Amino acid sequence: MHLQLAPKTIDAYGRCLNDFLDFCQRSKVIPEAITREQVTLYVHDLAHRPNPKRANVPSIKHGQGLSNSTMQQRLTVLRLFCDSLVEQQLRQNNPVGRGHYVPRKAFGGVRDRKLLPHYHKLPWLPSDEE
């Protein structure tokens, strides 16, 4: 089914899914049977793998890990992949859940959070010495 997505969006989603399938192959994980714990291993892999695009950008985590927005996109594609498996009745649940709002649980209570916090990274500014 074509959902009126731009060709570049479809290409990006395909590359994200290929990245996940490569992780599964390296980690000996069955993609259709992935657990929440294995999803967290995938997030850890995304956050700590060498990033050649950031090798020359000075930062605290110099050249390490993908950007937050890239990791968000990879998790979105993984969630959609698992949603399709649930829809096809190949799994019962989706291990890549979304965060859920729970009323009156803001202070002192526990909320079900997303796997990866969403944040906006501030631009790097050189110091006076640089």
Score class of each variant (00 low, 15 high):
D45V: 02
G109W: 01
N18G: 04
L116H: 12
V110Q: 04
D45M: 04
K8V: 03
S67N: 07
L41R: 12
H100S: 03
D128Q: 02
G65E: 01
I10A: 10
V29H: 10
Y42E: 11
L115H: 07
V39L: 15
M71L: 07
P103V: 00
H100M: 00
L85M: 11
R74N: 14
S84Y: 06
T70K: 04
L75Y: 02
H44I: 04
K53V: 13
H2G: 13
I30D: 15
P31S: 05
R49P: 06
S67M: 09
S84W: 07
A33V: 05
L115A: 03
V29P: 11
G99Q: 14
L3N: 07
R111A: 04
D22W: 08
S59N: 09
R15C: 03
D83N: 15
T9S: 13
P126K: 03
Q92D: 05
L66K: 14
L46E: 06
D83Y: 03
H2E: 07
V110W: 03
F20V: 08
H2T: 08
A12I: 03
P7E: 09
I10G: 06
L85I: 08
L17S: 05
S67Y: 07
I30V: 15
D112W: 00
L115K: 03
K105A: 12
L78H: 07
P58W: 06
G109L: 01
S127V: 00
W124T: 01
F20H: 11
L3T: 11
G109Q: 02
I30H: 14
E130N: 01
L21S: 07
G63C: 10
H48E: 11
I60F: 07
L41G: 14
Y119E: 03
R113M: 04
Q38E: 15
K61W: 03
A6T: 06
G108I: 00
G109E: 02
L21T: 04
F23L: 09
L90E: 14
D22S: 09
Y119G: 10
T35K: 14
R26P: 00
S69K: 11
T9Q: 10
P126S: 02
P58H: 08
L125P: 00
R26S: 13
T40M: 10
V102D: 09
A106I: 02
F20C: 09
P123H: 01
M71N: 13
Q73H: 12
M1K: 09
P52D: 11
L78K: 08
R26L: 12
